[in-house]
Amino acid sequence: MPSDQPSSAPPELFDRAARRRRRDRAQPDWAAHDFVRAQMLDGIAERLDAVTRRFTDVLDLGSFDGGFPPPPGARIARCDPGFRFAARAGGVQGDEDRLPFAGGAFDLVVSAGVLDQVGDLPGALTLARRALRPDGLFLAAFLGAGSLPTLRSVLLEAEADRPAARIHPQVEVRAAGDLLVRAGFALPVADVEVLTVRYAGLGRLLTDLRGMAATNLLAGRSPLSRDTLARAAAAFAARADPDGRTEERFAIVHLAGWSPSTEQPKPARRGSGTASLAAALAAIRTP
């Protein structure tokens, strides 16, 4: 017989409270570890430069220290899951899948470096689209599939008998584009760029990840033992090049989509296009 009781909500993928605490711990020394997000912001700026229209109300979603500069003359609201980052940026504290903003409040939403830590990514994208006015633009970047392969490999080697979940689930670029469609965005575009960094040791990589607030936030995670960490460090060192450095990769997924409007051009049949991301963004002209 069917139950009359409402179904329970699915379990949270990430520990929200731990995420807030780690962002607060990362804030004082953020500038020493912001290179991945700086790369993301450069990509967002490049894509924004390809758009010839003017924006007046901007949301910086996942603001960190407020490093994203608004377009000339635009007002900007900043939102971050961490209290200290939100305060430093002059914004408000809030999660990406629980936005504290009214629908249609913005004509540009940007997000760099946070969407890979959101359990309900489809919901977060839907809320970002709802926060936009018709013909508003969404630009985002986050770490996707292919990120941290060396760290994943050495941790699996170090815990070969009983491997634990240490790396967050990662979104493929094609799936990210599909999520934009599911969230209701028009003219969706997704692409990926890879940033390669060479480290002298595993400790330096882990220090960067802590400084980025990018360590393991999975609910139900277990701590690394000293023995496991030592084995992982040895495996990391064994992968070093002749200069004594080991490569690690950060795969940055870039997303772009428009809030639907009757004035927008109709997209071509799926699979028939060959246009670049810049061309797709430039398709919307200033009225």
Rank of each mutant, 00 (worst) to 15 (best):
F185N: 02
Q93V: 03
R16A: 14
R22E: 12
A102P: 02
A17N: 12
V51L: 05
A213M: 03
G67V: 00
P265G: 07
P6M: 14
L59V: 03
A233C: 02
G257P: 09
R269F: 04
A18Y: 09
T126L: 13
L139G: 05
L13H: 05
A102S: 09
R226Q: 12
L206R: 12
R25H: 13
L137G: 08
A237D: 14
D116S: 10
G211R: 09
R129F: 06
V192S: 13
M40H: 01
G73P: 10
L139S: 00
G271T: 11
R75E: 07
A283Y: 02
A233L: 04
D97E: 08
G104N: 11
M1W: 02
L281E: 01
P81I: 06
G136F: 05
P169K: 05
R221T: 06
V197F: 09
P287N: 06
P149Q: 09
P267T: 13
F106K: 04
A282S: 14
I284F: 09
I167P: 08
V114E: 00
R239L: 15
L217F: 15
L224R: 02
Q5W: 13
A77T: 07
G91T: 10
V194P: 04
A105W: 01
L139M: 00
D60F: 08
D65C: 10
L59T: 12
G67H: 05
P81D: 10
P287Q: 03
D178C: 06
R174L: 13
R37I: 03
A145M: 10
K266V: 14
A89M: 09
